[in-house]
């Protein structure tokens, strides 16, 4: 494992910890999109079908379990926790995320490395992850003001994607036959979706002002 991939995994983990911290410390999930969290839950469940069939490393297995567990825990909290669910921005979080699930599954049925159960679900999870942040970004844009922890959550998620692209560039030059166009193209799309957010985050950081997204 190279340093870029490790940095990517760590920023991904930090983003999840920031999200858990926000929900547990403030007992609030305002500014967080339940739709995006549900999509991540589906992404991890679909991608980690190999959890019990292929062993790669203890590191991989533990991280997979953490990603599945934390995403399901957040979804549970936002839906059922007596206090937390009250702060859910139900009226603003109206993105029709099931269309994303359907669209990505159709795409995976046609564009995959091999037509097998696992490969189709793997491709589906890659496509869905690329667009899973959309409901979250739209919710932030609609509500305008972004609290610090929510802003940092999205920032770390974006950093994770950026590091993974560096990881692929590194692997492309250091490994033989490292072709992976499905995840590279999807990864580029996903990172591009964050570009706008990064820009406004940088502006607010430079001006030492609260993060505000234009309507």
């Amino acid at each position: 494992m190279n340093i870029f991939r490790f940095a990517g995994d760590m920023t991904h983990l930090i983003s999840i910890l920031v999200l858990l911290l926000k929900v547990y410390a403030t007992k609030s999930c305002s500014g967080i999109s339940l739709k995006t969290q549900e999509l991540y839950g589906i992404v991890f469940l679909a991608r980690y079908l190999d959890l019990f069939t292929d062993f790669i490393s203890v590191y991989n297995t533990v991280m997979k379990l953490v990603f599945i567990g934390s995403s399901l825990a957040i979804v549970w909290c936002m839906r059922f926790h007596r206090v937390v669910k009250r702060s859910y921005d139900r009226d603003v979080d109206t993105f029709r995320h099931y269309f994303l699930v359907g669209g990505c599954f159709l795409l995976a049925l046609f564009v995959h490395e091999k037509f097998s159960f696992r490969e189709v679900f793997w491709a589906f999870s890659i496509y869905l992850e690329a667009v899973a942040i959309l409901p979250q970004l739209i919710l932030l844009q609609r509500s305008g003001n972004v609290d610090n922890l929510t802003g940092q959550y999205v920032l770390f998620l974006g950093a994770y994607r950026g590091f993974y692209i560096l990881n692929w560039i590194y692997r492309y030059f250091t490994e033989d036959q490292f072709s992976r166009w499905i995840s590279c193209v999807s990864g580029l799309v996903q990172t591009a979706l964050y570009a706008d957010f990064f820009y406004y985050y940088f502006i607010s950081w430079k001006n030492n002002a609260k993060l505000k997204l234009p309507a």
Partner: peptide, 10 residues
């Protein structure tokens, strides 16, 4: 089967 390099990531 052998795990492809793509699938050793998270």
């Amino acid at each position: 089967g052998q795990t492809s390099p793509v699938k050793d990531e998270l």
